[in-house]
C-alpha cells in the first residue's frame, strides 16, 4: 500500500473512532449540561448496547437493521430505568454523591457483565463490515461508510432537535439556568428523563454502528467514558458541539498515533490532549459557552 493510501486509511479509521466517541461524548455533554451530572456509567450504556446488538444479531439471528434498532430501544428503556432508580435519588445531592453513585453503577454493570457473559471478547461481523469498497487502490469497509453517514445524520438531527423542538429548547434553557426553568414551569423532571433516554439511546446507536468493526468485551466502558469525557472537557465542558468536534480530534489523533507512533499507548492520547487543552486553553478549544 502506498504511504498516502495508508495515511488516508488511518484518517478514515480515526474518523470512525471519532464518530463513536462523539456519540458517547454528546450524551455525556447533554447530561452534564441539562442535569449538571457526570454519568460515569455512560460507557456501560455503550457496552450494554453492544451486547444487546450482539444478542439480537448473532444469537437471535435478526437482520442487521432490526437488531440495530432494537439495541437502542432497549437502552432507551434502560436509561429511563436508570433515571428512575439511581439518578432521581442523587440529582438533588452533592456532586460527590453523584459521582460515586454513577461510578458504583459502572462497576456493578461491568462486573455483572463479566459474570454473565464472560471476559472472552465477542465479534459481530456483518455483511457490510466484510464488504470492501475499493476506489483507486484505496479500500474501505462499507460499515465504516455507514458509521460516518449515520453519525452525520445523527448529529444534524440532534442539533435540529435541540434547536427546534419544544423539549430540545427546554433542554437548552435548563442547561443555562435550571432554577429559573423550574420557576417558569418547564417540567424539569420530564426534560431530565428525555435527556437520559436520549443519551443512552445515542450510546447504543454508536454501539450498533461500530460493533461490527471492533470486538465487544465487558470492561470496554470505562476507557470509553474517560475518552468521551476528555472530549467533553476539551470541547468546553457541557457544550455539545464542542464535545463532538473534540471527539473527532481525539479519534483522528489516536488513529494516527496508534499507527505511526505507538499502538500500545494510543489509549493515553485522549488524556494527553485533555491535559494539553487544560494547560493552554482551560476554557476549552472553542471558548467558554453557556449552555449545551
Amino acid at each position: 500500500m502506498t504511504p498516502i493510501a495508508d495515511l488516508l486509511e488511518q484518517l478514515l479509521h480515526g474518523l470512525t473512532l471519532g464518530a463513536m466517541y462523539a456519540m458517547v461524548a454528546a450524551g455525556l455533554a447533554l447530561m452534564l449540561g441539562v442535569a449538571r451530572l457526570i454519568n460515569f456509567a455512560h460507557g456501560e450504556f455503550f457496552m450494554l448496547g453492544a451486547y444487546a446488538f450482539w444478542l439480537g444479531y448473532s444469537e437471535l439471528g435478526l437482520p442487521y437493521p432490526i437488531a440495530a434498532l432494537l439495541a437502542p430501544a432497549v437502552m432507551v428503556i434502560f436509561g429511563i430505568v436508570y433515571q428512575h432508580t439511581v439518578i432521581r435519588a442523587i440529582l438533588p445531592r452533592s456532586w460527590h454523591v453523584q459521582l460515586i453513585a454513577t461510578l458504583a453503577t459502572s462497576i456493578v454493570l461491568t462486573n455483572l457483565a463479566i459474570i454473565v457473559l464472560g471476559t472472552q471478547p465477542k465479534e459481530v461481523p456483518t455483511t457490510l463490515s466484510a464488504r470492501i469498497l475499493e476506489v483507486g487502490g484505496f479500500r474501505i469497509a462499507w460499515q465504516r461508510l455507514l458509521v460516518l453517514v449515520a453519525a452525520l445524520v445523527i448529529f444534524w438531527g440532534l442539533d435540529r432537535f435541540v434547536a427546534r423542538t419544544r423539549t430540545g429548547r427546554a433542554m437548552r434553557a435548563m442547561s443555562q439556568n435550571r432554577e429559573a426553568c423550574a420557576v417558569v414551569g418547564v417540567d424539569v423532571q420530564r426534560v431530565t428523563l428525555v435527556t437520559f433516554a436520549l443519551s443512552a439511546g445515542l450510546a447504543a446507536v454508536a454501539a450498533t454502528l461500530v460493533s461490527p468493526l471492533f470486538n465487544i468485551f465487558p470492561d470496554m466502558g470505562t476507557v470509553l467514558t474517560l475518552k468521551a469525557f476528555a472530549a467533553v472537557v476539551a470541547g468546553g465542558f457541557g457544550y455539545v458541539n464542542g464535545a463532538i468536534a473534540a471527539s473527532f480530534l481525539i479519534g483522528i489523533t489516536e488513529a494516527l498515533a496508534g499507527s505511526y507512533i505507538s499502538y500500545a499507548y494510543k489509549d493515553a492520547i485522549a488524556f494527553v490532549i485533555m491535559i494539553a487543552v487544560l494547560l493552554w486553553r482551560p476554557q476549552g478549544l472553542f471558548g467558554r459557552r453557556i449552555g449545551i
Binding site: I38, W95, Q98, Y265, F271, M274, I275, L279
Partner: peptide, 27 residues
C-alpha cells in the same frame, strides 16, 4: 494541571491519570 479542573471534572481527570499509569505499567 489537574487542579485546574474542579469538582467532578477533577475526578475524571484523575481517573484518566490512573488509566494512563496502568497503560504505561502494562506496556
Amino acid at each position: 494541571p489537574l487542579f485546574r479542573l474542579t469538582e467532578h471534572a477533577f475526578a475524571v481527570g484523575t481517573l484518566g491519570l490512573a488509566l494512563v499509569a496502568s497503560v504505561v505499567a502494562n506496556n
